[in-house]
Amino acid sequence: MEQSFDDDEGVRWMLAWKAGDEAAFDRLVERYSPQVYALLTRFLGPRDNREDLVQEVFLRLLRNRDRYEPSARFSTFLYRIVFNLAVNHTQRVIQRAEGSLHGRHGDEDGEQLAELADDRASAPFESLEQDDVVRAVRSAIASLPENQRMALILAKYEELPYAEIAGVLGSSEKAVKSLIHRARETLRERLAPFLKEELA
């Protein structure tokens, strides 16, 4: 039985845009760009070029306009684009950083290295020294594997149900449950000093 998404305004706008209503695309950008920006920032860390990535997400939406079929909620469809783009971006940053470690040291590489350090920081104890809880939490989340990180962010900050997260990650609800459980375990370990302070 085909599921209906008539109550989903994103789906309605997307279908209207597909049918030729250009204003529907404006509504989509206005309504969803803040969410896309927030999700990218939480997943990749706060950097200046996040706005470029937001634009990239909507470019991909543009490219998929004619192929779009409402098989899920619009947010699921959009967040899936965000997730794929963010993972690609991370891989590209790592590759560039590795390339620059093997010889090249331009300004851009310096930026990439800084971003890599921000995105994949895995030493909460450095943050402990700085007594910066926010930074430690951010680092601990950034150190999670990509699918665990996205599952946790969607559950905790976007408050998405597990079934929808499964749609974003292309996995099952059970797998999402397991991903989040493991993510929380890792965070409990990495943030242990802060948890003790919190409990005290």
């Binding site: 927030a38 920032t41 409990r188």
Partner: peptide, 11 residues
């Protein structure tokens, strides 16, 4: 842990 995660400011 919930409190720590919630301490992150919104982007």
């Amino acid at each position: 842990l919930e409190a720590l995660l919630s301490s992150l400011p919104n982007p």
